[in-house]
Amino acid sequence: MNLFTDILKVLVMLTVAILLSACSEFKKDSVSIRLAHGLDVQHPVHVALEYMNTELQRLSGGTMQLVLYPSAQLGSEREIIELLQIGSMGMTKVSANSLEAFVPEMKVFSLPYLFNDQAHYWNTLQGDIGQRLLAAGTQYRVRGLGYFDAGSRSFYTTKQEVHKPSDLNGLKIRVMSSQSAVEMVNTIGGAATPVSFGELYTALQQGIVAGAENNPPSFYFSKHYEVSKFYLLDEHTSIPDVIIVGTHLWDSLTAQQQTWLTEAMNVATEFQKQLWAESTAMSLAKVKEAGVSVVEADKSLFQASVQPIYDELKGTSIEPLVKEIKALGDSK
């Protein structure tokens, strides 16, 4: 019996040693990717990133995972991009607008009324044009992994309804810190006023700005509808969100790990599309319930008002890209 017990102990010890060795090897080969972004945990983008994490763990057999830092815990979009560039952060979600300083071609998405409809939008993003733009950031040490829907941006105001471009004349309209956004609002007739998103509720409440522009979910989840009771569905720009990865991280992954991450991104994109459509419908319903006047714009008036922006593109490096995107929409 003692011999049997001794043999059993040895077998148990060997088993434990093998398991510990396996665990050690797992830890050595596993990858935890830190991903920071500025949105609330209820936002469709964050929910889709959680879904992406689940998918990544499934594809990799538990050897890869995303560690999410929402709500701007680790800084602004630009600050996080800079962390990616030096390898201190793995991934982030940013607006294509925020990438203009790093990938100048991304400026094209800030052009008003660039897309005919949702089909044109996604054919551009998921086709050759969109993929080229994702790769264009490599020289800046960031690489686009894929796109999320960020809807279409529309105007909202605190004091008066807007029906036509002239209704914006002289009104201070908050825009992102982007030259393209400033030019668009000024061309339409407003007075573009850059304000950080975190300070915008107070700026609207105190009358520092008379309005802003954003998509319905952001308008709702930010609670800006509490101080802005007029929302014009003019849908002037459709600027996608971009999931980017630092080349420091990307180059450290094996080919298989890169494939798993890309596949998880593609699945999350399809999931997020549906989430975004549902969130947009819900957000518009909620703000209407809260007393917001939602007006359907005559888009032809606004399209005509921004024609000078397209006229100024003639002879620039962006003009061929615009023509390529427009041709894609016309080929349907």
Score class of each variant (00 low, 15 high):
P216M: 10
P216S: 09
P217K: 08
S218C: 10
S218G: 14
F219M: 09
Y220W: 15
Y220F: 15
Y220R: 05
F221L: 14
F221E: 06
F221D: 02
S222R: 06
S222H: 05
S222V: 07
K223D: 12
H224N: 10
E226Q: 15
V227M: 02
S228D: 10
K229D: 10
K229R: 15
K229T: 11
K229A: 07
F230N: 06
Y231A: 07
Y231F: 15
Y231G: 04
L232V: 09
L233F: 03
L233K: 14
L233W: 03
E235F: 12
E235I: 04
H236S: 07
H236M: 08
T237Q: 03
S238F: 06
S238T: 09
I239E: 00
V242F: 02
I243Q: 04
I244M: 01
I244H: 00
I244T: 03
V245R: 00
V245M: 02
G246D: 00
G246P: 00
H248M: 01
H248W: 05
L249S: 02
L249F: 00
W250M: 02
W250R: 01
D251P: 02
L253R: 02
T254P: 00
T254E: 00
A255K: 10
A255E: 08
Q257Y: 03
T259F: 03
W260S: 02
W260R: 00
W260T: 01
W260Q: 03
T262M: 07
T262R: 05
E263A: 10
E263Q: 15
E263M: 07
E263G: 02
A264V: 08
A264E: 01
M265F: 06
M265P: 01
M265A: 07
N266I: 08
N266Y: 13
N266F: 09
V267K: 13
A268Q: 07
E270N: 11
F271W: 12
F271K: 14
F271D: 12
Q272D: 06
K273Q: 13
Q274T: 13
L275Y: 13
L275I: 05
L275S: 11
E278P: 09
E278F: 11
S279V: 03
T280I: 04
A281P: 04
S283H: 08
L284I: 12
L284K: 07
L284N: 06
L284S: 10
K286D: 08
V287T: 11
K288V: 05
K288Q: 15
K288T: 10
E289M: 12
E289G: 11
A290R: 15
A290K: 14
A290P: 14
G291I: 07
V292P: 05
S293C: 09
V294F: 12
V294I: 11
V294L: 15
V295Y: 14
E296A: 12
